[in-house]
């Protein structure tokens, strides 16, 4: 959950990163910039999908637990 909170910060850092490089000294080719950006983008999607899966499982576990508790309380 906490890691999922941090994901957008990582994303911001990675997409802002190109601003930091000194383009005068070593001009980057556009194609590599494209590969970098789409790579970051796809990485974010994958991580996000992973977290969403984890969270879903957690939620299911939690619901199941609550259900069990309710049933446990009943008798």
């Amino acid at each position: 959950m906490d890691a999922a909170h941090l994901l957008p910060l990582l994303g911001v850092l990675l997409v802002i990163l190109p601003l930091l490089r000194n383009s005068e000294a070593e001009p980057a080719s556009t194609s590599s910039a494209i590969l970098y950006l789409f790579g970051v983008w796809f990485g974010l999607v994958l991580l996000s999908a992973m977290f969403s899966r984890l969270l879903k499982e957690q939620n299911l576990l939690k619901e199941q637990k609550e259900l069990d508790q309710e049933q446990g309380d009943a008798p």
Binding site: M1, H5, L7, P8, L9, G11, V12, V15, W41, L44
Partner: peptide, 11 residues
């Protein structure tokens, strides 16, 4: 990218 970051940070 803006919306992407917002959705990734949906929490």
């Amino acid at each position: 990218l803006g919306p992407t970051l917002v959705m990734v940070g949906w929490l």
